Every structure is written in C-alpha cells, then in structure tokens.
Simulated scan of single mutants.
Amino acid sequence: MNDLLVEQRGAVRWLRLNRPHRRNALDRTLIESLDRAFGQAEGDAGTAVVVIAGQGQSFCAGADLRHLLDVAEQGRDPVRSLFRASALFSRIETSHLPVVAAIHGHAVAGGLELALACDVVIAADDALIGDGHVRNQLLPAGGASVRLPRRLGANPARYLMLTGRLLPARDRLFSGWLHSTVPAADLYGAVQDVAEELAAAAGPAQARVKQLLCTTESLPAAAGTGAELAEFSAHWDATPVADALRAFLTDRREV
C-alpha cells in the first residue's frame, strides 16, 4: 500500500497521508514520501497550490511512537529521523507554493507541527487538536515551540504544550489560527474552494509575499519594514508590474 496518495485537481495537488491503520503517524518512510512528492509539486508548472490531508480517521497523530520505541530499545538516537521531519516542515513553510492543511479526526504532536507549517488551515469542527508531547514524556522536535506561540499567541501555546491537552477545532483558542471550521462532511469541498482561490492569485507577487512573510515573521518592526521595502524593490525590478497595473486600470475603465 502506498503511504502517500497524490491527486491533481486542476492547479491544486492533493497529498494524502495514507497510513490509516496508524492514524497517519509519521515514520521515516512517510516523511520521505511526503518530502519527495512535495518537491515534485514545487517543480510542476501546472501546480499552484498544495493540499495536505489524511486518509482514514485522522489527519495525523504525530510521530510513530512504535518507531521511537524501537529506536530507544536499540540504543540509537532518534534525532536523525526527527531532523528529517523538522526539515520537511521548514521546507513546506518556506516553499513558494501556498500550502493548505485539511484537518479531520486528530492533529496531534507532529501532526499539529505539520499543520503549523502550512499557510492556511481548515478543520472539521469536531477534529481534536493539540501538542500532546508531554503526555508521553516527549519534547517537540518539529517546530512546535517556535511556530505554536507565533500562530496562537504565547499563553495559549504554553497551555497546550504544558498540559498536552487536546481541544476541539471549534474551541476559541484556535480562532486566530484556523481559517475556518466546517462540518466534517463539508471539509474537502471547503478546502478545494480555498485552494482554488489561492491558485487564482498565483504568480511572482504571491511567491514573493510568502517569502517576505517568512523573512519578517521573527524580525523587529524596523528591520521587517526595511526588508519589505527591499523586497518590493527587487520585485519591481524583476517583474513587469507596469503591465499588470495597466491591465487592471484598463479593465476598470471598461466596466
């Protein structure tokens, strides 16, 4: 059985984690499959947006704990395999392609970290979301300590990380991060609609905006605004902006 399913819907490429018997827990093989498929999407001129979803009952339940236990019992260090996951999540976050996460069932620990790396997150309203690491005496290794405070705010992130509690997606704690919550039956239709909206705006400006957001997120305000102006200048010089402005103003005159 393929551990990752790939489907093209117009300009939107769906990547579905396919280990339903393990709630799509991340092992080395799945991480490598997702990394490879994501790279193929980035290199395909016909793909403007990537959706990451899960087959079966859950989006992703995190790292495969059986794999981690095997590593421990063999006396090996798990950091190498965890580094691969962390690098993949950073690749998703900084890719020129917009990435949408479609959450249902559970998004826990590494599953939450995967979703945190995406640009837009839509969840079924009954999905359960949380960090969960501390309940198994684990620490995050896929970016949660960095991204969760930035997405939710410092105190909500501390609560989730220090308790390990799972909350339904409709909880107000997630309101500033989730694009929307919808009935489970409507999830994939809602995700495709948003992905197509993102695809309609595809182009050099969108790619640079995503790059800019990644650059300025951790900068002080003065440095961030300076980086913004520098990126504007680079984009202006490299892209026929005047043609786009001319077309926009012409269309307005014709209305």
Rank of each mutant, 00 (worst) to 15 (best):
A242T: 15
S145I: 14
A45H: 07
A234E: 01
G75I: 03
C60P: 12
S233R: 15
V79D: 06
P98M: 05
A201P: 11
T163L: 13
A144P: 10
A184G: 12
A207T: 07
R170K: 03
A184S: 13
A53H: 01
A41G: 02
L245A: 14
A202L: 07
G224A: 15
A123K: 09
T250M: 00
A234G: 00
P98S: 06
M1T: 07
A85W: 12
V121K: 00
R91F: 01
A102R: 03
H235N: 02
G43I: 13
N24L: 06
L5C: 09
L17S: 08
D243K: 08
L229G: 00
Q211N: 00
H106I: 13
C118Q: 02
R170Q: 03
E7Y: 04
L229C: 04
R9G: 03
R36M: 00
F59K: 14
R165G: 11
R76L: 14
R36Y: 00
E228Y: 10
A85R: 13
L82Y: 12
P98G: 05
A205K: 11
G56Q: 13
Q192D: 05
H179G: 02
T94Y: 03
P240G: 06
L26F: 14
T239S: 08
I52T: 05
A117Q: 01
H133G: 11
L69A: 09
R91N: 01
G143F: 02
A199M: 07
R19I: 07
G153Q: 03
Y159D: 00
R91G: 05
C214Y: 03
G130H: 14
V120N: 11
R36H: 05
G46F: 09
A101K: 02
R13W: 06
V191S: 14
L17W: 11
L166S: 10
T216A: 15
I31G: 04
